[in-house]
């Protein structure tokens, strides 16, 4: 096959992956809906549960009066209970579909990325379209890892929904044909710096979804009027805010270390390519801003009165900055990092 044909095949695979993820999105949503229907019964089941798993070495049961700092197995919330066999069947079918479509989507997605690399004859992350492709791939992989052994369809809804949106945007707006790169990008630092940046973006994405869930559940627990209705009943079935916070923190910790590496690797590369390691180029500014926001998040978690909800808002703001860095800064701010591959006016 010629590179052009490989490139076209890759594009078709991305469309296919996006379609399959859309099915996954629907399945996660159905799963969530079924979960919500079971909430009143589930609550009773949970209350009567402590004896449910006798003698499981290594497992953790979470006492209702959890002392601070306790982390249980996240997401055991809605899984036990014998009532509601109908919903249970529906749930397991929905979950099965969600799982298998996510897996299928991943296979197509990986293939698309590999073919893209073959078509361009370089690492397939050098322009916005490719960032979108690889970033969403990482997010879905992290989702799949997080959902192993956890029952969090809401996370599935958020991440697959986001992925479908991002892929569509990538295909319709950011798309450019597979091609070589300009001399400044022709470096192994492209593989390292950009690769790690995209990976941390994917990790931050899932973490942000967990924090959103944490905020929602916390608001409902505290009697928020907007979230009191029946439509939000499923929130009772998700893990407690402290557990979601713990999940979000662990992902964010990984993301933050990767982001710190991105920052350092970027500076080293800038020193090689532009002759200065730091020059307050818009992209550098935003990388710094994101880093500072997540550093503030880590501080907030351990500052009295700033943990929990407030810390979760930092995650949301941090991820908003990540998205802004990727979209606004690439497209509208002029700087040395004008690598979107799209020509924008100037």
């Amino acid at each position: 096959m010629t590179p052009a044909e490989l490139g076209d095949l890759s594009t078709n695979l991305v469309w296919a992956a996006a379609t399959v993820y859309t099915v996954a999105l629907v399945a996660y949503t159905l799963d969530l809906a079924a979960l919500a229907e079971r909430v009143p019964r589930t609550r009773r089941a949970v209350a009567a549960r402590p004896a449910a798993r006798p003698g499981v070495a290594g497992g953790t049961l979470v006492a209702d009066r959890a002392p601070t700092g306790t982390v249980g197995t996240v997401g055991t919330g809605g899984t036990v209970g014998t009532a509601g066999a109908g919903e249970a069947r529906r749930r397991s079918r929905a979950r099965g579909i969600a799982r298998s479509t996510t897996a299928l989507g991943l296979v197509l997605h990986v293939l698309a990325v590999v073919l893209r690399g073959l078509a361009a004859q370089r690492t397939p992350w050098a322009n916005m379209y490719e960032f979108t492709l690889v970033g969403t791939l990482v997010a879905v992989v992290v989702l799949a890892v997080v959902l192993r052994g956890r029952d969090l369809p809401f996370l599935g809804v958020l991440v697959s929904g986001f992925t479908v949106l991002a892929l569509a945007l990538g295909l319709l707006v950011f798309y450019i044909r597979a091609d070589g790169v300009q001399p400044a990008l022709d470096s192994y630092w492209l593989v390292i710096h950009v690769g790690v940046a995209i990976t941390s973006t994917g990790v931050f994405m899932v973490a942000a979804a967990a924090s959103v869930l944490q905020l929602l559940r916390d608001s409902r627990d505290h009697g928020s009027a907007a979230l009191a209705g029946n439509r939000w009943r499923w929130l009772e079935a998700v893990p407690r805010p402290t557990e979601l916070e713990a999940l979000s923190f662990r992902l964010n910790a990984v993301g933050f270390v990767l982001w710190t590496f991105t920052l350092i690797a970027g500076a080293i590369w800038a020193e090689h390519a532009w002759g200065r390691y730091w020059g307050w180029d818009p992209k550098e500014v935003w990388t710094f801003v994101i880093w500072t926001v997540y550093a503030a998040y880590l501080h907030a978690r351990t500052t009295r009165g700033w943990g929990g909800r407030r810390a979760a808002w930092f995650v949301v703001v941090g991820f908003a900055c990540v998205i802004a860095n990727f979209t606004l800064v690439n497209l509208f701010f002029s700087g040395l990092h004008s690598y979107s591959g799209l020509s924008t006016g100037s």
Binding site: G58, G69, V71, T73, E245, A246, F249, R250, R301
Partner: peptide
């Protein structure tokens, strides 16, 4: 801090 491996 949070530590899932504590009980284990």
């Amino acid at each position: 801090g949070d530590d899932v491996g504590l009980q284990r």
